[in-house]
Amino acid sequence: QTIHNGDQTYHYDNPEEAIKVAQKLAKIYNLTVTVKGNTVQVH
């Protein structure tokens, strides 16, 4: 599972963990989380 947060990319073995982290980032920075296959984008 990969999270793209602007210019930063994070890799997680656990998809659920990746989505949790993405949602935390989204709340902190007031962003949107988009899940596309194995990629979670925060923008």
Rank of each mutant, 00 (worst) to 15 (best):
Q1I: 13
Q1V: 13
Q1H: 11
Q1R: 02
Q1Y: 06
Q1W: 04
T2M: 12
T2P: 12
T2H: 12
T2V: 10
T2D: 10
T2C: 13
T2N: 11
T2F: 12
I3N: 11
I3Q: 11
I3E: 09
I3R: 05
I3G: 10
I3D: 11
I3A: 12
I3T: 11
I3Y: 09
H4P: 10
H4M: 11
H4W: 13
H4N: 10
H4G: 09
H4A: 09
H4K: 09
H4I: 11
H4D: 09
H4V: 11
H4Q: 10
N5D: 09
N5W: 15
N5T: 12
N5I: 13
N5G: 10
N5R: 12
N5K: 12
N5A: 10
N5L: 12
N5P: 11
N5S: 12
G6V: 12
G6M: 11
G6Y: 13
G6R: 12
G6A: 11
G6H: 13
G6W: 14
G6C: 14
G6L: 12
G6S: 10
G6K: 11
G6N: 09
G6D: 08
D7G: 13
D7Q: 11
D7A: 12
D7K: 12
D7V: 15
D7Y: 15
D7W: 15
D7P: 14
D7S: 13
Q8W: 15
Q8A: 12
Q8V: 15
Q8N: 08
Q8R: 15
Q8Y: 14
Q8P: 06
Q8E: 08
Q8I: 14
Q8G: 08
Q8C: 15
Q8L: 13
Q8D: 06
Q8H: 15
T9G: 03
T9M: 11
T9Y: 15
T9Q: 07
T9D: 04
T9S: 06
T9R: 05
T9V: 14
Y10C: 10
Y10W: 09
Y10L: 09
Y10P: 01
Y10I: 04
Y10R: 03
Y10Q: 02
Y10H: 04
Y10M: 05
H11L: 07
H11F: 12
H11A: 05
H11S: 08
H11N: 05
H11V: 14
Y12S: 02
Y12R: 01
Y12W: 03
Y12H: 02
Y12D: 01
Y12V: 03
Y12E: 01
Y12P: 01
Y12Q: 01
Y12I: 02
D13K: 13
D13R: 13
D13E: 08
D13F: 05
D13N: 12
D13P: 09
D13A: 14
D13S: 13
D13T: 08
D13Y: 04
N14I: 03
N14D: 09
N14E: 03
N14A: 04
N14W: 04
N14S: 15
N14G: 04
N14Y: 04
N14F: 04
N14L: 04
P15N: 10
P15D: 06
P15A: 11
P15R: 07
P15T: 07
P15H: 13
E16D: 08
E16N: 06
E16A: 09
E16M: 07
E16K: 07
E16P: 02
E16W: 10
E16C: 13
E16R: 07
E16F: 07
E16G: 05
E16I: 07
E16V: 06
E16Y: 07
E17M: 12
E17L: 10
E17V: 11
E17S: 05
E17T: 14
E17I: 14
E17A: 08
E17G: 02
E17H: 06
E17C: 12
E17F: 06
A18W: 05
A18L: 03
A18Q: 01
A18R: 00
A18I: 02
A18T: 01
A18Y: 02
A18P: 01
I19G: 05
I19A: 09
I19V: 08
I19M: 12
I19W: 14
I19S: 07
I19T: 08
I19F: 12
K20R: 13
K20P: 01
K20I: 07
K20G: 04
K20N: 06
V21A: 15
V21E: 12
V21D: 04
V21Y: 08
V21G: 08
V21P: 00
V21C: 14
V21H: 09
V21F: 12
V21N: 08
A22K: 01
A22Y: 03
A22W: 07
A22T: 01
A22H: 01
A22S: 03
A22I: 04
A22P: 00
A22E: 01
A22D: 00
Q23N: 09
Q23G: 04
Q23P: 00
Q23S: 06
Q23A: 10
Q23K: 10
Q23T: 10
Q23I: 13
Q23L: 13
Q23D: 11
Q23V: 08
Q23W: 07
Q23E: 14
K24G: 06
K24Q: 14
K24R: 13
K24S: 09
K24N: 10
K24P: 00
K24Y: 15
K24I: 15
K24A: 14
L25I: 06
L25C: 09
L25N: 01
L25V: 02
L25Y: 03
L25M: 04
L25H: 01
L25A: 01
L25D: 02
L25W: 06
L25E: 02
A26R: 14
A26W: 06
A26V: 12
K27M: 15
K27G: 13
K27A: 15
K27E: 15
K27V: 12
K27Y: 14
K27W: 13
K27T: 14
K27S: 14
K27F: 14
I28V: 09
I28Y: 15
I28T: 05
I28H: 11
I28S: 04
I28N: 09
I28D: 15
I28F: 13
Y29K: 10
Y29T: 09
Y29W: 11
Y29M: 04
Y29F: 10
Y29D: 10
Y29S: 07
Y29L: 07
Y29V: 06
Y29G: 06
N30K: 09
N30R: 05
N30P: 03
N30H: 11
N30A: 06
N30Y: 12
N30M: 06
N30Q: 07
N30E: 05
N30W: 13
N30G: 15
L31I: 09
L31T: 06
L31V: 09
L31K: 03
L31C: 11
L31D: 02
L31G: 04
T32F: 07
T32A: 07
T32C: 11
T32Q: 09
T32M: 08
T32H: 10
T32N: 09
T32D: 05
T32P: 05
T32V: 13
T32Y: 07
T32E: 06
V33S: 01
V33W: 00
V33A: 02
V33K: 00
V33E: 01
V33R: 00
V33H: 00
V33G: 00
V33N: 00
V33F: 03
V33Q: 00
T34R: 02
T34I: 09
T34D: 03
T34F: 06
T34Y: 05
T34G: 01
T34H: 04
T34N: 03
T34K: 04
V35P: 00
V35F: 02
V35D: 00
V35E: 01
V35Y: 02
V35C: 00
V35H: 02
V35W: 02
V35T: 02
V35I: 06
K36P: 01
K36S: 13
K36D: 10
K36V: 14
K36A: 08
K36Q: 11
K36Y: 11
K36I: 14
K36G: 03
K36L: 12
K36M: 12
G37D: 06
G37I: 03
G37T: 01
G37E: 05
G37W: 03
G37C: 10
G37V: 02
N38M: 04
N38G: 05
N38T: 07
N38A: 06
N38I: 03
N38W: 02
N38R: 02
N38K: 04
N38C: 14
T39F: 05
T39M: 09
T39H: 04
T39E: 05
T39Y: 05
T39S: 07
T39V: 11
T39G: 02
V40T: 00
V40G: 00
V40F: 01
V40E: 00
V40Y: 00
V40P: 01
V40I: 10
V40D: 00
V40C: 08
V40W: 01
V40H: 00
Q41C: 15
Q41V: 15
Q41S: 11
Q41G: 02
Q41E: 08
Q41N: 07
Q41A: 06
Q41P: 00
Q41R: 12
Q41I: 15
V42D: 00
V42K: 01
V42A: 02
V42F: 03
V42N: 00
V42T: 03
V42M: 02
V42I: 12
H43D: 02
H43V: 06
H43N: 04
H43I: 08
H43R: 07
H43E: 04
H43P: 01
H43G: 04
H43C: 10
